[in-house]
Amino acid sequence: MRRVRIEDIAEEAGLSKATVDRVVHKRGHVRAETASKVAEAAHRLGYYGANLIDQQLAIKLTRVRLGFVLIKEKQEFYQNFKNELEAAAMAREDVRATPLVRFVSSQSPSDMAEAMLAVGEHTDAVACTAVNHHAVTAATETLRQRGKPVFALLNDFAPGAREHYIGLDNLKAGKIAGWMISTAAKGPGKVALFMGSNRWVGHELRETGFRSQFRQSGPDLALLDSVINLETRQLTYETTLALLERYPDLTGICVAGGGMEGAIAALREMRKPGEVALVVNEITTVSRAALSDGYATMVISTPLSALCRETIELMVRSVIDGQTQQLGQRFLEPQIYLPPSV
């Protein structure tokens, strides 16, 4: 007699093979009624592992509701971020982790704070990409008082109130960018540095690291005053065009935050590949193409999968074990992309 396969159970239960596989091999969470359908079909067909499925259904997993507040919903990086967070939460087998992701349409501190409090109403812990501002700090303190720890993602905020910062060491990332520009720039000339705003602590740290490295390795290069681009493509594009026209010897550009698409577009219009050394953040379709055709020199990227797994782990532990009094930082190693690697 042929052994019953997962495909047979899926057909009997009227479910997909992937759903049955998740139940049988504990590869994630499914609804209780769905798991029951799998168990019933397995018993009807005489599946050898039916009793093990019953045992799994009898185990009551702790439910942990995890909330996330992100920005820039339409951008590829943040969509990838959302997907990785949800996948990391659903992959947990020790708890029943339910992710709730909300995007904020603006970078207004009050909007971010409002979103944090709203998400906190329905979750046990909250992780955010937010600016460092007293409104965000107040929301963090309110959530903490309610027993709901807050975690800072990518950019640190609310020191003394948030639970952990998880992301890159932005000072180190700035030094890496400064070294790359000073190494790749062709001859003496000017270098431009774009920052989102002074409210993004991560951008300020990158600027500090960039300038520190530049003093050591870029004696023939003149670093211009930092440009605030509000992380927008259009403003970065228009400003890059103006800088290229004003400074024919512009030989390097670093975009410390968002808006890299604008710098890349301007360089494509005004310069040949490789004439200006360009360092940007996060590997996306746009930055990968710029590396491929020689308009980007280096991409410093966040390892999203590792970031999300680490974030989920810290959030789950804080909910189960309680908030800690030792607020910390978890630095991840950046992923470096160069033209030969794409």
Score class of each variant (00 low, 15 high):
residue 330 R to N: 13
residue 102 R to W: 07
residue 257 G to S: 08
residue 77 F to N: 08
residue 94 D to L: 10
residue 16 S to Y: 10
residue 270 M to G: 01
residue 342 V to R: 13
residue 98 T to R: 14
residue 119 V to H: 03
residue 297 T to E: 05
residue 152 A to M: 11
residue 35 A to D: 05
residue 63 R to V: 15
residue 206 R to S: 06
residue 13 A to N: 08
residue 9 I to F: 00
residue 249 D to T: 12
residue 264 I to R: 00
residue 19 T to R: 02
residue 142 T to C: 09
residue 246 R to C: 04
residue 155 N to E: 14
residue 308 C to V: 13
residue 209 G to E: 00
residue 227 V to M: 13
residue 208 T to S: 00
residue 95 V to T: 08
residue 200 W to S: 02
residue 325 Q to E: 12
residue 166 I to G: 13
residue 320 I to M: 12
residue 136 V to W: 01
residue 166 I to Y: 04
residue 159 P to W: 04
residue 109 P to H: 07
residue 18 A to V: 15
residue 118 A to D: 15
residue 258 G to V: 04
residue 328 G to A: 15
residue 257 G to H: 02
residue 113 A to V: 03
residue 226 S to C: 07
residue 283 I to F: 02
residue 58 A to I: 02
residue 76 E to S: 07
residue 103 F to V: 04
residue 187 G to I: 04
residue 85 L to H: 12
residue 304 L to F: 06
residue 173 A to M: 03
residue 122 H to K: 14
residue 287 S to D: 12
residue 162 R to P: 01
residue 311 T to N: 06
residue 326 Q to H: 14
residue 180 M to T: 13
residue 98 T to D: 15
residue 187 G to T: 11
residue 85 L to R: 00
residue 235 L to N: 08
residue 249 D to Q: 08
residue 249 D to E: 14
residue 211 R to C: 06
residue 312 I to Q: 01
residue 177 A to N: 00
residue 15 L to T: 13
residue 175 K to D: 00
residue 286 V to P: 10
residue 9 I to Y: 06
residue 106 S to F: 09
residue 316 V to H: 00
residue 283 I to W: 07
residue 215 R to D: 15
residue 169 D to K: 09
residue 145 Q to S: 14
residue 117 L to V: 03
residue 110 S to G: 07
residue 168 L to H: 05
residue 164 H to C: 07
residue 82 K to N: 04
residue 127 A to P: 05
residue 297 T to P: 02
residue 139 A to N: 10
residue 110 S to W: 11
residue 323 Q to D: 00
residue 169 D to P: 01
residue 295 Y to D: 11
residue 51 N to Q: 15
residue 333 E to F: 14
residue 106 S to N: 10
residue 288 R to L: 05
residue 302 T to H: 09
residue 172 K to T: 00
residue 28 G to K: 06
residue 61 L to F: 05
residue 180 M to L: 08
residue 20 V to Y: 01
residue 41 A to L: 11
residue 221 L to F: 06
residue 203 H to C: 08
residue 120 G to P: 04
residue 152 A to S: 14
residue 215 R to M: 14
residue 94 D to R: 07
residue 22 R to G: 13
residue 212 S to G: 07
